[in-house]
Amino acid sequence: MILDWPTELPRPERNTWSATHQDARRKRQNDAGPPGYSRRFSSVAKLVSLSVILDRNQKAIFDLFFEEDCGYGTALFHMPDPTTDGWALLTSDGVPLLTGDGQPLLMSKIWLCAWGDDVPKETIQGTEFRKTFSVVVMP
């Protein structure tokens, strides 16, 4: 069974967001000239570092999800893509597309994730908690 990211948790912060693709290249060193590259594997994961700001209740939900539900980061889970899920679908002019009753059409995208190399790190900001961690988005 694949778990679902808790809906009670907020979207990740924008200023700590970092994403890159796994390097799928195999470097070939030639006798002369620049190096060459070939594909090392066909499926490429996305590596994402992010953080969330949590109140005390949300911190408990996050901790329970990571520690108990995900076995301290050993289980896969579904997570809404913070760069797509819930954002308005726009025309080429940047105007939101609307339903018949005037509501914006929202995009939807769900990731299949594994916990990354950076397990959650916690810092305190006033009365809130910042959890910083990484995930591997499966291809």
Results as ranks from 00 to 15, higher is better:
D4V: 14
D4N: 14
D4K: 14
W5K: 08
P6R: 13
T7S: 15
E8N: 12
L9Q: 13
L9E: 10
L9K: 13
L9R: 13
R11I: 09
R11Y: 07
R11Q: 06
R11C: 02
P12Y: 01
P12I: 10
P12F: 03
T16A: 12
W17R: 08
S18F: 15
S18G: 02
S18K: 15
A19S: 12
H21Y: 14
H21A: 07
Q22K: 14
D23F: 10
A24G: 05
A24L: 08
A24D: 13
A24E: 08
R26M: 02
R26G: 00
R28I: 07
R28H: 11
R28M: 01
N30D: 07
D31W: 13
A32L: 14
A32C: 10
G36L: 11
G36W: 06
G36N: 07
G36E: 10
S38N: 03
R39H: 04
R39E: 05
R40E: 06
F41V: 02
F41E: 01
S43P: 00
S43L: 15
V44R: 11
V44N: 05
V44P: 02
V44D: 01
K46S: 14
L47V: 11
V48Y: 04
V48R: 06
V48C: 03
S49A: 11
L50A: 07
L50Q: 13
L50R: 10
L50K: 08
S51L: 08
S51M: 09
S51P: 05
I53W: 11
I53M: 12
L54Q: 07
L54P: 08
L54G: 06
D55P: 00
D55I: 01
R56M: 05
N57P: 00
N57A: 03
N57H: 07
Q58V: 05
Q58M: 09
K59H: 03
K59P: 01
A60G: 03
A60D: 05
A60I: 02
I61G: 00
F62K: 07
F62D: 03
D63T: 10
D63G: 01
L64I: 02
F65V: 07
F66C: 00
F66G: 00
F66L: 03
F66W: 13
E67C: 12
E68V: 11
D69I: 11
C70W: 09
C70R: 10
G71R: 14
G71D: 13
Y72C: 10
Y72D: 12
G73K: 11
G73N: 08
T74Q: 15
T74L: 15
A75V: 04
L76I: 05
L76Y: 14
F77Q: 05
F77H: 03
H78F: 15
M79F: 14
